[in-house]
Design a protein around this nucleic acid. Structure first.
Length: 327
DNA sequence: AATGGATGCAACCGCACAAAG
DNA sequence: ACTTTGTGCGGTTGCATCCAT
């Protein structure tokens, strides 16, 4: 089923001209986008609404960060990808100013190759056995397929203290030997007197801001730090279909049969609790809202992501080990 | 200088999902 | 409850550019 807005009348395709960009920018900055399907008409563009949306989001948005990815951003992508798989939109939320398309392209054109060259399966982030590794690309591809079909199930536990987050999902965790983080210069891990060290990809100035997600800065302290006591059963071989799906629904497993994972009712309930807690905190602290258009309902998943992500990061960054978990 | 493969990026396509009617 | 419509997402494609030969 195609998009009616694209089939109704002739629409232009391909690269956008500067004139088209200008029209779109003028329209959106003046009126907002409202309904994307009506934007082309109102803006005087021979484009599909979907195309306008994409152009705006991926290219014209004023808050976009242009230019090449930094080493830190690259590391974030790798780490979040290990947890989330090819969920580019979710990954991009950890990188302010970056779009899912950008992240996806960067992964496919750069990171993927880098991991493979380091003997890592870009899908599972596991080490490709040396006997399966060779200069032969076909053998490499085979190795990747084999790996992804042979991963055992594993269990991770997230508890309230985040102390025992056993991120063994893809053990051994093999982060490529990136430059050690310079905490003094890039305080990506902040610690408060009352809480754990939590990774943030954003604000370094405000000690109350512990992490960012959805372009929104979220504040948290021990009073509201949710008591996640959930056991997440992860399938290490396929983070794409498994871990951290919003509904915790599971796709077909590599073996072929449908694997119906238990729904994480506890986690869902926890998400609601988190939402409530966050609302309370936001109300109390007047959290700076970076982008009002972002829906706070994203908080639940993002929170879980953030916490898992944080623990993952802290675990790997040996220099940070000592920072964390001091309650 | 010509050419052909590799690469990176912007844009499109198709699907899933949610909201509205 | 069902259909229509709009939006968001991931995968894929097309094209411009780069680079080696």
């Amino acid at each position: 089923m195609g998009h009616r807005c694209c089939t109704k009348q002739k629409v232009k395709k391909g690269l956008w001209s500067p004139e088209e960009d200008e029209k779109l920018i003028n329209h959106i900055t003046t009126y907002g986008h409202g309904s994307w399907s009506s934007v082309p008409k109102l803006a005087g563009l021979q484009r599909c609404g979907k195309s306008c949306r994409l152009r705006w989001i991926n290219y014209l948005r004023p808050d976009l960060k242009r230019g090449s990815f930094s080493a830190q951003e690259e590391q974030i992508i790798i780490d979040v990808h290990r947890i989330l798989g090819n969920r580019w939109a979710q990954i991009a939320k950890h990188l302010p100013g970056r779009t899912d398309n950008e992240v996806k392209n960067f992964w496919n054109s750069c990171i993927k190759k880098k991991l493979i060259s380091q003997g890592l399966d870009p899908k599972t982030h596991n080490l490709i056995p040396s006997r399966q590794r060779s200069n032969n690309k076909f053998a490499q591809a085979q190795a990747i397929i084999l790996q992804s079909h042979q991963q055992p199930f594993s269990i991770i536990t997230v508890n309230s203290q985040m102390r025992d987050v056993s991120m063994e999902m893809n053990s051994p965790i093999l982060t490529p030997p990136a430059a050690p983080p310079d905490i003094t210069q890039q305080p990506s891990s902040l610690q408060t007197s009352s809480g754990p060290s939590i990774f943030t990809s954003g604000d370094h100035q405000n000690p109350n801001i512990l992490w960012t997600a959805n372009g929104r800065q979220n504040s948290l302290d021990s009073a509201v730090f949710p008591s996640i006591q959930s056991t997440l059963i992860s399938r290490a071989s396929s983070p794409v279909n498994g871990l951290l799906d919003e509904n915790f629904s599971w796709g077909s497993n590599p073996i072929g049969e449908n694997f119906e994972a238990p729904r994480m009712e506890v986690v869902k309930a926890q998400e609601q609790e988190n939402n409530q807690a966050k609302e309370n905190v936001d109300a109390a602290n007047g959290v700076q809202d970076m982008d009002a258009s972002f829906d706070s309902s994203c908080f639940g998943l993002d929170f879980v992501e953030s916490t898992l992500f944080s623990s993952s990061m802290c675990r790997e960054l040996s220099s940070m080990d000592d920072l964390a978990w001091n309650f």
